[in-house]
């Protein structure tokens, strides 16, 4: 009724009624975190393109693309564990371990495809082990992957004697530095992986079952969804993508370091959550996660281009995470009807 009255009373009735409807919708359902983050990122890009003449230069946009690729790939994997109401804290360490292993294998003289396959195989094995410990042994995901955070980092240090592994073939480094149609190959890699995962998540039974499981594991079990399969899928995907990101990082840096990808698990979780994923499970998207990763990369890039004090940059990223987790909590409360 109020919509109708307002539009009748106002000369610009149509506009007002649209705004009115929108504000009603917001009152009823709240602003989805995704919308908020997309707007914030867009706003940041607009502001930065005015604030710095270098922001929208070709070189800088390519830098942002390369940078968001590796953190995006890790975040996509972590998103799948968050979707089933789990978590994967071990991705940074898995990336470092896979990176050191691929570098070691290359230095031993293995062909590139074999070295990459070996490191990827290790990542998959780690994911299967994580899922086994979580699902079969019943240890909480937080504990399993926190232990993994330590253990796989230790593995990376052991495999490398604590030193960086250099002397990699140029052809291996060439991949991460290459471009196709003017877009970095790293970015293509992320886009292709993202499209496939987006398709799986939104169009297939597997994606729907992951969301159902994270939303209400008991009801998913009752309708006959294979909870075990979904758990193994999510953790294996997470570790495999972390391994891939670790390999790509080595390709970009031309050196394998056991201390690489430190704290990347936090960035990945932050990207997924900022992109609308709920740490309580059942909610999240690939597009949102990409936007989340892009937002953090943009903040860091913008701060560098504007010469913002690095300490303030950390504070800004921290405040952003706090705000988004707060919104997530509000949503959870709304969901439980309080």
């Amino acid at each position: 009724m109020s919509v109708l009255q307002t539009s009748e009373l106002n000369k610009q009735g149509v506009n007002v009624s649209v705004i009115d409807k929108l504000s009603q919708r917001i009152k009823q359902k709240g602003v989805p975190v995704e919308t908020f983050v997309v707007l914030l990122t867009a706003l940041l890009w607009v502001v930065l393109s005015f604030a710095s003449p270098y922001f929208l230069t070709e070189g800088n946009v390519l830098n942002i693309m390369r940078q968001v690729s590796i953190s995006g790939i890790i975040a996509f994997g972590v998103l799948f564990t968050i979707l089933i109401a789990g978590i994967d804290l071990s991705v940074g360490s898995v990336a470092a371990l896979a990176g050191v292993v691929v570098a070691k294998l290359l230095v031993l003289g293995l062909p590139i495809w074999l070295a990459v396959a070996g490191a990827m195989g290790l990542g998959i094995a780690i994911g299967l082990f994580n899922a086994f410990a979580i699902f079969r042994l019943g240890i909480p995901a937080f504990i399993v992957t926190l232990a993994g955070l330590q253990a796989y980092r230790g593995g990376a240090l052991l495999a490398s004697d604590g030193m960086s592994v250099s002397g990699l073939p140029k052809a291996f480094s060439a991949f991460a530095r290459g471009e196709f149609l003017g877009i970095p190959t790293l970015f293509w890699t992320m886009v292709i992986i993202g499209l496939i995962l987006h398709f799986v998540l939104t169009k297939t039974r597997t994606g729907r079952y992951l969301i159902a499981m994270g939303s209400n594991q008991e009801s998913a079990r009752r309708v006959g969804i294979n909870i075990s399969k979904m758990t193994f899928l999510a953790y294996t995907l997470s570790a495999a993508l972390a391994a891939l990101a670790g390999i790509l990082l080595v390709s970009r840096l031309s050196v394998g370091t056991p201390t690489a990808a430190m704290a990347y698990e936090l960035n990945a979780i932050a990207a997924a959550v900022v992109g609308g994923a709920s740490l309580f499970g059942g909610r999240g998207s690939i597009t949102g996660t990409f936007i989340g990763a892009l937002l953090f990369v943009t903040i860091a890039n913008g701060a560098n281009l504007l010469g913002v004090d690095p300490f303030w940059q950390m504070v800004a990223a921290g405040v952003l995470i706090a705000i988004v987790v707060y919104i997530d909590n509000v949503q959870k409360r709304r969901k439980s009807g309080v």
């Binding site: 969301i211 159902a212 209400n216």
Partner: peptide, 12 residues
């Protein structure tokens, strides 16, 4: 407890 998956649509 109704056993619906909260994050899925009615049809889903």
């Amino acid at each position: 407890d109704l056993a619906l998956a909260d994050e899925l649509s009615v049809g889903a």
